[in-house]
């Protein structure tokens, strides 16, 4: 028997909320998005656009700002707060040019020795004809490979839904945190139910067995920290949630930036290398 099952410390006071209820909290239309958090967490923020090949994907936002004075690169999946924002951000479902923009900005950060902070908030990468034509699979694969060897600290944080490869593309990092009610899953609960039981409406049942909560990710050794949300969810107090996020980021970045880059890269590789359970 090999690997993981790291200590499930940090047990929450809200253990009794079911995974499905958490999903409903995350999907609450008042849940704060990255556009709410940026002014609360960063100063001097400049948004930067485009992948320099094809276009600019509204589903992924990128830019430079300061975190307690330190310049950082911010890359984030963008949920819309209303129908107009959602149209512009394609409901946070990126196309390949979104991932390529993210990678461009990550390499720019590497060049200028800025840490990268990724915010994950997507039901998944977009599934469509144009996305396939422009190589959705290749774009995600490239992201995974190049973030793994990126010579600057990378911190990722799941704000809401972390859906599949589209989330993981921004999730190769030195440390992963999740907001308490956030989820991270290999496939949407709906997709899971429709494959397994041929019935997409059995979403709640799927949530029960998929192990998609922040606590599950922590106990599986995939996420390192759970960031507390105010009672009832982040929408009840975005300012406090933002403070909690900023506190985690400052603490973790200080830790990671103090490390020798080779040590950091080895630790990043091993963080993923050790995930998996098998017998031999």
């Amino acid at each position: 028997m090999a690997e993981n099952m790291s200590g499930a410390a940090n047990v929450s006071q809200e253990r009794e909320i079911t995974p499905f209820e958490r999903l409903m909290i995350v999907r609450n239309k008042n849940r704060p998005t990255i556009r709410d958090y940026i002014p609360l967490i960063f100063t001097d923020f400049f948004e930067l656009h485009g992948d320099r090949f094809y276009g600019d994907d509204g589903a992924i936002l990128g830019g430079i700002g300061r975190l307690e004075g330190t310049p950082v690169t911010v890359i984030a999946e963008v949920k819309g707060r209303d129908i107009y924002e959602n149209k512009a951000s394609n409901f946070a479902m990126p196309h390949p040019e979104g991932y390529r923009k993210a990678l461009r900005l990550a390499h720019q950060a590497e060049k200028f020795h800025r840490p990268v902070i990724c915010f994950i908030d997507t039901p998944g990468a977009f599934c469509g004809v144009e996305a396939e034509k422009r190589g959705q699979g290749e774009a995600i694969a490239r992201s995974l490979a190049e973030f793994m060897t990126l010579k600057t600290p990378v911190i990722s944080l799941v704000l809401g839904e972390g859906g599949s490869g589209g989330a993981l593309a921004l999730g190769v990092c030195d440390e992963l945190a999740m907001l308490e009610n956030a989820s991270y899953s290999v496939i949407s609960p709906r997709g899971f139910a429709s494959i397994l039981w041929k019935d997409p409406s059995k979403e709640e049942e799927a949530c029960g067995i998929m192990r998609i909560t922040s606590h599950d990710a922590l106990s599986l050794g995939i996420c390192e920290e759970i960031i507390p949300e105010p009672a009832g969810g982040a929408h009840n107090d975005p300012e406090t949630t933002a403070e909690n996020i900023a506190e985690f980021l400052v603490k973790t970045l200080n830790k990671k930036m103090a490390k020798d880059i080779d040590v950091l890269l080895n630790e990043r590789y091993n963080k993923f290398r050790k995930i998996g359970e098998f017998m031999e």
């Binding site: 995600i140 694969a141 995974l144 490979a145 190049e146 793994m148 060897t149 599949s164 490869g165 993981l168 999730g171 190769v172 991270y184 899953s185 290999v186 496939i187 899971f192 494959i195 397994l196 998929m210 192990r211 998609i212 599950d216 990710a217 599986l220 995939i222 590789y269 993923f272 290398r273 995930i275 998996g276 359970e277």
Partner: peptide, 20 residues
């Protein structure tokens, strides 16, 4: 699917090994 999030992470693990 039966290995949940653990299976998703295999994408990062294999891609990282490919990068190396």
């Amino acid at each position: 699917m039966q290995e949940g999030l653990v299976s998703l992470m295999q994408m990062a693990k294999t891609s990282g090994a490919a990068a190396r």
